[in-house]
């Protein structure tokens, strides 16, 4: 049989309706998780199999709905964020969060921290320097300062997210991000830095502030 069948698992129904791929499964999950609930292989399998079964469909184009909600979109009442002191620098906050982060790495045998290609202490120091209006250490000279800062911020967020997941329970993303953006020094300083960037005279900083630091839902 000739040809490669395609199946799309799409999160934005409007985009599926506009692009009309041959076979698509729309899933009602939050952006960023097309297969749904983390650590729930039974649920994930249902999603993947339902999508793949569309290759048997003769109807074209077909957009089918996956109607079950992601069970992990519900807040977990047992989960509590790490209890940490108030710090004056992100560097110190990272040091205090280290045991939580390390526990999560051991539990999952994995970390999603790493896109910046540098130790978290160096990335926190860079963030602190930029926040204080100083020139940070050149960590990867081949990258522009802005790109290095972007990767540093991506890794710092991932570090905090993983530290938050070390606590008992299965938190929703909303719970983790509530804590990150509202209760940590990193969260408040990222929001402040974004304000500074978008109000600067530098087009590149404005662009960075508008796109790469704070997600829409956490902007003030």
């Amino acid at each position: 049989m000739a040809g490669i069948s395609t199946v799309v698992i799409g999160l934005i129904k409007l985009h599926l309706e506009k692009t009309r791929p041959p076979r698509a499964l729309w899933v009602p999950f939050e952006l960023g998780r097309p297969i749904g609930a983390p650590m729930d292989p039974r649920f994930q399998r249902q999603v993947l199999v339902k999508a793949l079964q569309l290759v048997e469909s003769a109807k074209q184009p077909v957009i089918e709905d996956f109607t079950d909600e992601d069970p992990r979109s519900i807040d977990c009442p047992d989960w509590r964020p790490p209890v940490i002191a108030t710090h004056l620098s992100v560097t110190d906050e990272c040091i205090e969060l280290k045991p939580w982060y390390q526990r999560q790495c051991v539990d999952k045998s994995r970390t999603s921290v790493g896109v910046a290609g540098a130790p978290i202490a160096d990335l926190a120091a860079l963030f602190d320097a930029v926040y204080d209006g100083k020139e940070g250490k050149k960590i990867r000279p081949e990258l522009s300062d802005r790109l290095m800062l972007r990767y540093a911020i991506d890794d710092l967020k991932a570090y905090y997210v993983e530290a938050a997941m070390a606590e008992r329970g299965s938190p929703s993303s909303r719970q983790i991000y509530d804590w990150l953006w509202q209760s940590t020094l990193l969260g408040s300083r990222m929001r402040e830095l974004r304000h500074r960037f978008v109000n600067s005279d530098d087009d590149k900083l404005i662009d960075m502030g508008n796109k790469f630091i704070v997600p829409h839902q956490w902007r003030d």
């Binding site: 939050e30 960023g32 998780r33 650590m39 993303s173 790469f212 704070v214």
Partner: peptide, 19 residues
């Protein structure tokens, strides 16, 4: 490149994104 989607699922279980 985008910051406007959930990354907690990927951090917790890569199968939520790349099964």
């Amino acid at each position: 490149i985008s910051v406007n989607f959930d990354r907690t699922a990927f951090a917790e279980d890569i199968n939520s994104v790349f099964p």
